[in-house]
Amino acid sequence: MGIRKGDPDALEEFYDRTSKQAFGLAYRILGNSASAEDAVQEAYLMIWRQGSKLDPTRGRLKSLLMTIVHRRAIDTLRSERGQRAAGAPEDLDYLAGTSPDPAERVALTMDREDVRSALGSLPADQRSPVELAFFNGLTHVEISEKLGVPLGTVKSRLRLAMGKLRIALGNV
């Protein structure tokens, strides 16, 4: 049995193995335990309810969980700011994307320090907009206003930063 077959024990084992990372991500974004718990709970239940669609690869499942937690937490942040959520489909088919990808390699082989090192290797003026986008849920326009730099500069820095991260994470 497994999560795909609707086995609660499999979900419990998956929770035991992944919940610290999932909760750490939600807490980093939301900054309080109650909201972080909601995001994490919704993510595990989404995986449970759409389990029949899941790829059985362990790394892929963990990567998917983290993507869902991130999406839920950012939606909550944006909702608290009176903004609409991104509006992407709340469906595992969409969230899973294509495979394989570096996020799966992270889930399987890399540790947090690898990602931290890759992010830390970026110049501050590129790292800052990446963090504001990923962990604060700001759009490029909002980042431009917050940092006081032109929108074109923000687009350019985000593009450069993500290109570097793609190479750094792909080579680990």
């Binding site: 990372q21 991130h70 994307g97 947090r112």
Partner: peptide, 12 residues
Amino acid sequence: AAGRSLAFEPEE
């Protein structure tokens, strides 16, 4: 995928 990888950066 590089964007999604950032989800693994925060402390557990």
